[in-house]
Amino acid sequence: MNLPPDEHPPGLVLDARLHLLDRQVLDVDGVPVCTVDDLEVHGVDGSDLPDGSRPAVVTSLLSGAVLATRVFGGRPPSSRWHRIRWTHVADVGTTVALGVRGDTLDVTWTERWVRDRVIGRLPGGRHDPG
């Protein structure tokens, strides 16, 4: 069975599972932020439930609580998603690079909590190893 080849689109082609989902997200300084757990898609007219009648685009990367439902099934309550707006994405390669600092994003709140409450309080926790 030989299917006709697709036309060659002008931009970079990304298959979601192959190139985006579960990729490491790095911030502008190269610090790991999270992995891509899901993508939020809207119609270009802003509709939340697009179909083929109008183009749709990725508006945000999602991370955090979405992991549990991806492993065990179900749909996460939307209040628990952490969004990273596509506006912040600077490059997509073997990692997804952001143009902002990870500390400014909601998704890193657990990292900041552990740093401020535990690790940062232990002696030497804020110094370079050496």
Partner: peptide, 25 residues
Amino acid sequence: VVDVRFVLDGPLDGTLAAPRLHGLL
């Protein structure tokens, strides 16, 4: 649906074009 194909040729959103939903595998 085993994967969803996007193409980076949507409207400009930040530094990159937004990934346009191109098709379903």
